[in-house]
Design a protein around this nucleic acid. Sequence first.
DNA 1: CGACTTTCTTCGATTGGCGGAAAAACGAAC
DNA 2: GTTCGTTTTTCCGCCAATCGAAGAAAGTCG
Lengths: 418, 418
Amino acid sequence: MRSHNASILANLAWAHAEGISRADLARDAGLSASTVSTIVSDLMAADLLSSSHIAPSRGGRPPVVLRFNTQRNYIIGVEMGASHVAIALCDLRGAVLWSRSIHHDVPNDPPGTLRLIGELVDEAKVRPEAQGELLGLGIAVPCPVDGQTPDRLSPRLLPEWAEVRLAAQLHHRTDVRVFVDNDANCGALAEALVGAGQGISDFTFIKVATGVGAGHIVQGQVYRGFSGIAGEIGHTTVDANGRRCRCGLKGCLEAEIGSGSVIEQAHEAIAGGRETSLAGIAELTLADVVAHAKAGDALAREIIADAGSHLGVGVANLLNLLNPARVIIGGRLSHAGDLLLIPLRETVRDRALWSSVERAEVVISPLGQSQIAIGAATLVLRAALADLSLFWASEQDAPVPAPSQVSSIWRMGGRGRG
Amino acid sequence: MRSHNASILANLAWAHAEGISRADLARDAGLSASTVSTIVSDLMAADLLSSSHIAPSRGGRPPVVLRFNTQRNYIIGVEMGASHVAIALCDLRGAVLWSRSIHHDVPNDPPGTLRLIGELVDEAKVRPEAQGELLGLGIAVPCPVDGQTPDRLSPRLLPEWAEVRLAAQLHHRTDVRVFVDNDANCGALAEALVGAGQGISDFTFIKVATGVGAGHIVQGQVYRGFSGIAGEIGHTTVDANGRRCRCGLKGCLEAEIGSGSVIEQAHEAIAGGRETSLAGIAELTLADVVAHAKAGDALAREIIADAGSHLGVGVANLLNLLNPARVIIGGRLSHAGDLLLIPLRETVRDRALWSSVERAEVVISPLGQSQIAIGAATLVLRAALADLSLFWASEQDAPVPAPSQVSSIWRMGGRGRG
DNA sequence: CGACTTTCTTCGATTGGCGGAAAAACGAAC
DNA sequence: GTTCGTTTTTCCGCCAATCGAAGAAAGTCG
């Protein structure tokens, strides 16, 4: 009903960062000018929209340009990584106003992690950049999130977290809505709203770091599959005779290009007497390998190019199977840029059967270090844009538990709307 | 609006083949009883629903059971295969009332194929089974269908068809709506509506015959990807050191289990002096291999079990990447039944990282020989159920060209409804 | 300076769904 | 058998929300 059209208009206004007139809103939404006018006045009363300036006339009365009020609220996104917690304070455009990243042993220390997140959120709340009210808290977790039991992390990957009800605890601590989703899905959502996936209805985001995971955007929505684990590209086979993976198989993508494997490959080469500037680094990390590759080290470049080729096999299979318009590579390995991308693209081209697959774009995420934390923030943003009532009901009911999917059957009317 | 809710109710009634009362419709659809009553009376006036009988009371007034009128129209589905044309005459339930299959060199003879289809349609129209009016004609084609140029078949796979406007010509010939889609997508749709995918929102159908293709059902809708070629599982790599594929790569799934490969493997073994009942068959076909495997021939069983294992690798990758609730195997190879399925499931279990993947069901299509032709018919059925106006506008406008996707943004109101 | 355009608002009119009342048709209890 | 309660279905008035037409506002253009 009304709220649905209001949501459409709000989304249109949000998408037009440069501003949009009522007349253009009516055209884009396919609604009558009168309807748009009444809804816009509601949205302005709610401070979601505000008129920005008057654009030059196009032959008649000059249009009043409306802007989505990105300062109305702020959002906090938190990335729980394998070995760090990152936080990003964002406005409603998804722009990062402030961020931090702290080393922490997340998998093995749930209480400490919860405390750390609480402190970081408190810190963010009092930052001068935090304008308006806190709209919600988004958390990206390094494991699949099941739609059935959304507030339980995977006991298999994170046994220590098995009994922790993350969203509930953080809601209790912070008193705002808490949204939880898998990190790769968050990354995909970030790209969809503020990154390389803007305006693209079907793409896949691949995060390559400690693990390798993918998030699919299908018809503009995050796709979770049947039990919420779609995107486990890390354990698809890319080389049946490849390295042994922690999952027990051989040649999983993750076993070839996950940070553990990359570092292992470097160690093996060093042990084999290979000349490299990586030798002598005490605790070799993926960041070291990437940095030295960029600085020109031959071994590091080789390892990364190799990773690119392996990733290319997985991407080619993905393209054949799902045919996304674009594949966006993120995660720490993606900071290697062209060193990774060029061999990747080459492999994809070699393995692409269809010209349309060949034409599919493979790019590196433009969102940088905070990518996943931004994605966590966009969980809140997307939810609020899809259901504007979240903007006016600040406290109320329980933390939103599920990785909320917009209900697939849209139902007109229906009993008991708010 | 109204028509949308009418569509919801019609779909509910269709889905309840045993019949459903107005009160239950209201409950299931979340609409008020009064609204349901008015819409139902419209649908009954249009002869889409009819009251069937009165069910026993559940303590109050006994409910009038309504049934979707599956005899109101009939549908014709046509499968264009690599070497045959199959036709299925279906009622609105998707049940096959009559079918035929004719050998024909489809790829190299467009005019003859069009003529043949025309004759088959004419034959179907005068069958006694054809009740009511012809609702539409669905065509399953053995190549991807692009949303941009829906009425052009792939010039790469079917060069002879490059200039043929299939849907337009058939519309001209038959004067009914023509719907065209890829065969694997048709197969998936058939499973969704009348096969092993009923009630499952996310599954994948894999057709294994001459080629190997998949059709995805995502959130209850056929998923085509960006350029309409999603599901090209046949050219994902399952064994980097495997057989050479016609696409130039090695170890594509199709190169391992496509009918060409299966027959080739049989010939190789026979040439190698292997004892088998397949030896001596003049023109060995996939059907022969399947039949002899069922009859107990060791070589045939081996080849099929091998195909099952290879398919298992592809299915495992698919499960990891997309996490469908079920994978349905169809196509001629699937007639081998357990001989294919057992090794397939074993491979999947070995390669499944997540318990939910492990639990995913892999089954054989229950729809048999006419599966794809039924799928072509369900193209029409789905379109009409999604847009009831197709039921009352028999002739009118151009043939429906695109593999119609339900528009992703649902818009309330909007100008100019019918 | 008038004609024309484009934008935006105001004002009925219409559509369509909802809630409640009422009718219909039954079971159960006394 | 009468009465009461229940479930199904219909009828009626109300309300929300959109649209179209008309008009006001604020320009451009010749």
